[in-house]
Design a protein around this nucleic acid. Structure first.
Lengths: 211, 211
DNA sequence: GACTTTGTTTGACACTTGTCAAGAAATCTC
DNA sequence: GAGATTTCTTGACAAGTGTCAAACAAAGTC
């Protein structure tokens, strides 16, 4: 089903106990993330997660202490998948234009192809304002995403012979604001929103650097 | 308790039926908003709302068809309170500096004094991605907030003899991104966040206009 | 092959949820 | 003040929740 899970089944040879348990957790988390992405935090129950998986609801509790433990694990697992999304673009781009094109392409692509995941992320970040237990994980991801944006902006400045004109948290908040706007608006207007996002980023990116 | 409710009690003389029912709804909504702001959407039940009010849980159902009807009403009621927040600043400012100072002051003030309301707003906007019935109301508020930001930016351009260098949706997404970052981070760092927000806006605002 | 450990199923529990309806209380109308 | 209407209280319901524990199966160990 997922990259990790299927990789697991390809090589079922030797699995030391700790790895096996970790593998199950990942499978559970993948399944939970799918359900969470569709229904959102508020409407997702442990039974729903179990129903949409190959496991029964008891198994969920065998591998996770409670609901928050599961969700928290999901969030942590999720972060490893997303914050390196633009690395290849950053490394292979040979000009500012190149980088911008690649960045916009990847960004609109993930907006379209992984909408549920992004919806979930903004949902969970909002939940973290009310549920303290989620806060450390959310903060960690936010940090990762900020660094991701900063790598892109630094490289962009390099390639164009300029310097970043805002600091990292600011750059992240700005670009994230545009992206969240796109995610929220995507359901209502899936054809137009990606282009709108592209246009807005093209307006903004040049203003984030200065000679 | 609130401005509207207390105004209602000061003048209990003549109240035509339709107004009385509307008044009760407002009182319920105020109470619901208080609870929602503290607990967030996911953890707020109708009974909790009733418990934190002077009414019983049956009354809630007497005045609102169901839960979504109540929350939807709350959202609509809320919007009337917030989108004119900066109007006075916009009208009285006589220079760019003036406007920026007033804007930043009001923004950090509402961040600190009305934190629960802002948390709720970002929560509800996230919920609207999963709950279609919330979408029209959320979209309407987003529109209002975009216009609010645009009034500020236009006036800022006027006063500084420049022109806005981004369109309205972009400007809103950028500033809202910074504000949401501040709201999310406020709980963890209530002393520093307002100043950080101020600093970041000062970095950004000049870049949103051009000669 | 018996025994132990590990993993899984199933069913139950206590509780909360949104919703509703029957009736009491208050208010209004004449 | 009697009767009608509106407003509110109370208690109940069905459904869903997180959690747990006891029975069961599988796998590993000697």
């Amino acid at each position: 089903m997922s990259a990790v899970a299927s990789a697991a089944e390809e090589r079922p040879a030797r699995v030391s106990g700790i790895d096996k348990i970790e593998r199950r957790r990942i499978a559970l988390a993948e399944s939970a993330l799918k359900t969470l992405g569709e229904l959102g935090y508020a409407r997702t129950s442990l039974r729903e997660i179990a129903n949409n998986s190959e496991f029964t609801h008891g198994v969920v509790h065998y591998y996770f202490r409670d609901k928050i433990d599961l969700i928290s694990y999901c969030v942590r697992y999720y972060k490893t998948k997303c914050s390196r999304r633009y690395d290849e673009v950053v490394e292979t781009a040979t000009s500012g234009e190149d980088l911008v094109t690649g960045f916009l392409g990847k960004m609109t692509q993930t907006l379209v192809e992984e909408t549920p995941m992004h919806k979930l992320w903004y949902d969970l970040r909002a939940q973290s304002m009310f549920e303290e237990q989620l806060r450390p994980d959310v903060e960690a991801i936010d940090q990762l995403l900020e660094e991701m944006i900063w790598r892109i902006l630094s490289r962009y400045a390099d390639l164009t012979g300029t310097a970043a004109a805002v600091d990292a948290p600011t750059a992240y908040a700005l670009i994230d604001g545009l992206f969240e706007q796109a995610v929220v608006g995507y359901a209502a207007n899936p054809e137009k929103v990606p282009d709108l996002l592209t246009g807005r980023l093209l307006q903004v990116l040049p203003k984030l650097v200065a000679a």
